[in-house]
Design a protein around this nucleic acid. Structure first.
Length: 551
RNA sequence: UGGGCCGUCGCCAAGCGGUUAAGGCACCGGGUUUUGAUCCCGGCAUUCGGAGGUUCGAAUCCUCCCGGCCCAGCCA
């Protein structure tokens, strides 16, 4: 996995062409403009990687800008979380801005529009405006307020700003074309009255600019060259251009739209995500099953893997659905390369090696990474009693089973070959202990005269450390849960399995929170960044190992 | 004839008038292996939503048709 040469896409082609033609004096400036009204998810990661990635590739820059134009939905809790997520993903913004930084300029520009007779104060109700807007197939009708004099508009707008009116009494509209086939051009609202505390400007303003008016002006003020956004804004581009043309801003960024991310078995609508959290269907925004950046992080995904993912899925205008396997592969690729190997047993079953002395103790040396010598090694104690995973033993094995069976042999990973001689059960018939003997001539060498194919991970019963291991699966069984009648019903009942009695090798007790490991034969895990502490080992499984054994 | 946009392998995606139609994921073999992992090697679209047309030559240009997505917030 490398972050080198990103795949070609239509946006890079446009930029290449612009550069060739000397447009923007060879500058490339992008921006990532989230509204601070929630947590970022993997769909935002796509946009972040695109915007910051293009800036990097072309030696340009990328700004982080909070689109904080609707004070009723926004909060600094979110803007702080967003900054943390962007940084964690590995990107540095050039400038940090807020749309609210431009409120004064935006107001002056609005006055300019009024003076040019390109904007007017509308005093109809929202209801009436909707009626007059017409429908998709029928043109709208002009408002009776459309022909107010410039002086009257100026006066009213100033009084709106001064707080003389209540929410909903008036609105400032652009004067464009009520008959346009594009509904966004039927005199769109530019300003509305909102007597609400703003997260940054407090109660200074009682009017707030709308997205369509704010975004293009903000882009222009920051001298953005390429304003990248998602497909649903295609219809807004004529308005974006109209505003900048009317205002004759010195800079006129080019808006380019690309398809948003759709990932199978998950759902990226902010509204639905909020619902998951509020209805306690998950544990919060950072629940490891959430597609939020913070959730993916806690699950054990890495910035490298997420960046690789964004590069692999590409940028187009197709409504594409990405299979989970792509994300999982990115995760495995990265951690296969970087994660140190460890052993842990999820559901322990005791193995007594009867051929060993009661107090047998042996220190074995395990490589941290079989393909990377530089990763070093760590000691692992071997004792008479060890634990193996319960599904690595079977009295009634399925075909091609390569693990331990009564009378059979298996290799304890990095240790001896053992043979199962006796199966101990409790009153209910449950297997509680296996009595085995070891072949002393198999440490570091193949057994004589026979083949032992199976290898099983294990932990010393005496030195193993108790741990809680959380296993995760997709949150939704449906490919597209958003389409389910009641999406809560689409939740996978087995999306989380807690293995409360797991035992892990001693070296893991001292692992720092948020350290990634491969537990051999089980998958990639991370020590939980919140719950993992000395004396309380907690690991989350990000993804299993690839498994080609037909189960 | 409201307006805008999209259709290349099961899923993504390069390709921009002349290529044997890249690559990744998935899948199917085979080899290595003390992780049923990794790694390696091989297979996987005579065809680009369909039909016409232009051209010596079309996935790439034109026309029509079919299928899908977005838009009627004082949300972004």
């Amino acid at each position: 996995m490398t972050d080198s040469k990103p795949t070609a896409n239509f946006i890079r082609n446009i930029i290449d062409e612009d550069l060739k033609n000397g447009k923007n004096d060879g500058r490339v400036v992008t921006r990532f403009p989230p509204e601070p009204n929630g947590y970022l998810h993997i769909g935002h990661a796509k946009s972040i990687c695109l915007n910051f990635g293009i800036a990097q590739q072309y030696g340009g820059s990328c700004n982080l800008r909070f689109d904080d134009t609707n004070p009723v939905k926004e909060d600094v809790e979110y803007s702080e979380a967003i900054k943390a997520d962007v940084s964690w993903l590995g990107f540095e913004w050039n400038e940090l801005h807020h749309a609210s930084d431009y409120f004064d300029q935006l107001y002056d520009f609005a006055v300019q529009l009024i003076k040019a007779d390109k904007a007017y104060v509308e005093s109809s109700s929202a209801e009436e405006m909707r009626t007059m807007r017409g429908t998709l197939k029928e043109p709208g009708t002009p408002s009776p307020f459309r022909d107010r004099t410039i002086e009257e508009n100026l006066d009213l707008f100033e009084r709106m700003k001064n707080g003389e009116f209540d929410d909903g009494e008036h609105v400032l509209r652009a004067k464009i074309d009520m008959a346009s086939g594009n509904i966004n051009m039927r005199d769109p609202t530019l300003y509305r009255i909102r007597k609400v505390e703003h997260m940054r400007t407090g109660d200074k303003w009682s009017i707030y600019p709308m997205y369509d008016y704010t975004h293009c002006v903000s882009d222009a003020l920051e001298h953005i060259t390429h304003s990248l956004c998602t497909l649903e804004f295609e219809d807004h581009r004529p308005l974006y251009d109209w505003v900048l043309d009317e205002l004759q801003t010195p800079s006129h960024p080019q808006q380019i739209e690309f398809a948003r991310l759709s990932l199978e078995h998950t759902m990226l609508s902010k509204r639905r995500l909020i619902q998951l959290v509020e209805e306690n269907l998950v544990d919060g925004w950072d629940d490891p099953r959430m597609p939020t950046i913070i959730g993916l992080r806690r699950r054990g995904f890495t910035p490298e893997a997420l960046r690789d993912f964004c590069d692999r899925i590409g940028i187009t205008k197709n409504d594409a659905w990405i299979e989970m396997s792509v994300l999982e592969t990115c995760m495995r690729d990265h951690l296969n390369r970087d994660a140190h190997r460890r052993m842990g047993v999820l559901d322990p079953i005791k193995v007594v090696i009867t051929s060993l002395d009661d107090n047998h103790e042996q220190e074995l040396t395990f490589s941290n990474h079989p393909q990377d010598e530089s990763a070093g090694s760590r000691p692992i104690p071997f004792t008479k009693e060890v634990y193996i995973d319960s599904d690595d033993f079977s009295e009634d094995p399925p075909p091609k089973y390569q693990r331990l069976v009564p009378g059979g042999e298996v290799r304890l990973r990095g240790c001896y070959v053992i043979k199962c001689n006796e199966v101990i059960k409790d009153e209910s018939g449950k297997v509680v202990e296996l009595h085995c003997t070891h072949d002393p001539d198999t440490l570091g060498k193949k057994p004589e005269g026979r083949k032992v194919k199976g290898v099983v991970h294990w932990v010393s019963a005496k030195y193993g450390v108790p741990a809680e291991i959380r296993l995760y699966d997709r949150l939704f069984t449906d490919v597209n849960p958003a389409k389910a009648e009641n999406f809560a019903d689409a939740i996978n009942p087995d999306s989380r399995t807690i293995m409360a009695s797991a035992i892990v090798e001693p070296s893991l007790a001292s692992a720092e929170p948020e350290t990634h490991f491969q537990f051999e034969r089980l998958g990639y895990f991370v020590s939980d960044r919140h719950d993992h502490k000395p004396g309380n080992a907690v690991f989350n499984r990000a993804v299993t190992l690839r498994d080609t054994w037909a189960k």
